[in-house]
Simulated assay, not measured.
Amino acid sequence: MTEAALRPLPEGMERPGIARGLSSILAHRYLLTLLVRKELRVRYQASVLGLAWSYVKPGAQFAVFYFVMGGFLNLSRALPPFAIFLFSGIVIINLFTEILTNATRSIVQNGPLVRKIFLPRQLFPVSSVLVALVHFLPQLVILVIGALATGWRPDLVAVGAALLGILVTIALALGLGLIFAAVNVAFRDIENTVDLIAMVAVWFSPVLYSVSLVRDHFGPDSWLTHLYMANPLTIAVELFHRAFWYPAADVTLREEALVPDLMARGGIALAACLVLLVVGDRVFTRMSRKFAQEL
Rank of each mutant, 00 (worst) to 15 (best):
T193N: 09
T193R: 09
T193F: 14
V194L: 09
V194E: 11
V194I: 14
V194G: 05
D195Q: 14
D195G: 15
D195R: 12
L196C: 13
L196T: 13
I197V: 14
I197C: 06
I197W: 07
I197G: 10
I197E: 07
A198P: 12
A198W: 04
A198Y: 04
M199K: 13
V200W: 08
V200S: 11
V200G: 09
V200I: 15
V200A: 14
V200N: 08
A201P: 01
V202R: 14
W203K: 11
F204R: 09
F204H: 06
F204T: 11
F204W: 12
S205L: 10
S205W: 07
S205N: 10
S205R: 07
P206I: 08
P206K: 10
P206D: 11
V207Q: 14
V207G: 12
V207K: 08
V207R: 13
V207A: 11
L208E: 13
L208F: 15
Y209C: 13
Y209Q: 12
Y209F: 15
S210W: 09
S210P: 15
V211E: 06
S212H: 12
S212E: 14
L213H: 11
L213R: 10
L213S: 11
V214H: 04
V214D: 10
V214Q: 08
R215V: 01
R215M: 06
R215S: 08
R215Q: 07
D216L: 03
D216F: 03
D216Y: 04
D216M: 06
H217N: 07
G219S: 04
P220S: 10
P220M: 05
D221C: 04
D221Q: 12
D221E: 10
S222F: 05
S222P: 08
S222E: 06
W223S: 14
W223Y: 09
W223H: 11
W223R: 13
H226Y: 08
H226D: 14
Y228Q: 08
Y228S: 09
M229D: 12
M229F: 11
N231L: 07
P232H: 04
P232Q: 06
P232I: 03
L233C: 07
T234R: 04
T234E: 03
I235E: 02
I235Q: 05
I235K: 02
V237D: 02
V237T: 10
V237I: 04
L239R: 01
L239Y: 04
L239N: 01
L239M: 05
F240V: 03
F240Y: 06
H241K: 02
H241T: 01
H241W: 02
H241C: 00
R242Y: 02
A243I: 00
A243R: 02
A243L: 02
A243P: 01
F244M: 01
F244S: 00
F244D: 00
F244P: 00
W245K: 01
W245D: 02
W245V: 01
Y246N: 03
Y246P: 02
Y246M: 01
P247G: 00
P247T: 00
P247I: 00
A248E: 01
A249V: 04
A249R: 03
A249I: 03
D250P: 03
D250E: 08
V251H: 07
V251E: 15
V251D: 09
T252W: 06
T252C: 06
L253P: 08
L253W: 07
R254C: 03
R254A: 10
R254Q: 10
E255P: 07
E255F: 05
E255I: 05
E256W: 13
E256P: 05
E256Y: 09
A257Y: 03
A257C: 11
